[in-house]
Design a protein around this nucleic acid. Sequence first.
DNA 1: TCCAATACCTCCAAAGACTAGAGCATTTTA
DNA 2: TAAAATGCTCTAGTCTTTGGAGGTATTGGA
Lengths: 139, 139
Amino acid sequence: MKEYSIGQLSKQCDVKVPTIRYYEEIALLDPPGRTAGGQRRYPPSALERLSMIAHARDLGFSIDAIREFIRMSNHPTAPCVDLDKITEKHLNDVKKRIKKLQALETELTAMLKSCDHGQVADCRILQVLSDHDQCQTQH
Amino acid sequence: MKEYSIGQLSKQCDVKVPTIRYYEEIALLDPPGRTAGGQRRYPPSALERLSMIAHARDLGFSIDAIREFIRMSNHPTAPCVDLDKITEKHLNDVKKRIKKLQALETELTAMLKSCDHGQVADCRILQVLSDHDQCQTQH
DNA sequence: TCCAATACCTCCAAAGACTAGAGCATTTTA
DNA sequence: TAAAATGCTCTAGTCTTTGGAGGTATTGGA
């Protein structure tokens, strides 16, 4: 039942203190309890919530997408019809990201390999990322 | 040898016109030629460049990371030592992203499945994204 | 060829997501 | 219990992107 100060939360999740307060302001984080002196004290669950937000942001999800993740997570018992489309949308998005990243991984690995051999890579990072559909189908 | 106006580029790459001008301002895009009247005219290569920027941004890469991709791509013949660390750093980053996204994919798929069966998912989207190392090792 | 309609130009401002600092209060720890 | 560390609010700034105002180019018909 330990409680965390905002600074401890910040260190644990690698999120700057003002950013945590900002997330509270835009209602991504529930307002935590306060000490008699007015300082924030977070329950352990806030740690998980915040680090999920940080990772999702890092992966390129918008604040709104994260809001949807949170809503989905908070209402696993909600009518399926409501969740179905949102889930599917995000799943498609995630699959696309994975594909692009895997293509990028291939290219970066190839660059490293040709480096190993002292050879010059015909660098295709840009082409891989530019995603004319060849990239998806021809690799 | 066709040339594109900024509007055509915008449509093709799904990047807003002011955003294209902004990318030029911060030197992510080379300043294109101009007509006698002062309007921008882009070579076909700009199309590829811009769409790579758009995709990389979408995947969550920072402007600086993209600058590095461009630099790497522009100098495939540069000394390997210079590129090696940068490449490896990005490769690690890409691998981490892929892992996180795959975990997320698993969870979203599970949600959809339990929806199919009219059952209630024990939704773990948040936990998956919060990435205490269990997620990497226990799945 | 001329003339709307459309697209473009620059410049300025604002929105979204943070980040930093000033000035003061609370907590911790030596 | 006093000094150091951390926290509070509020304001202002950055970065990336988007929108609008006011004016100029380009273009597709008549």
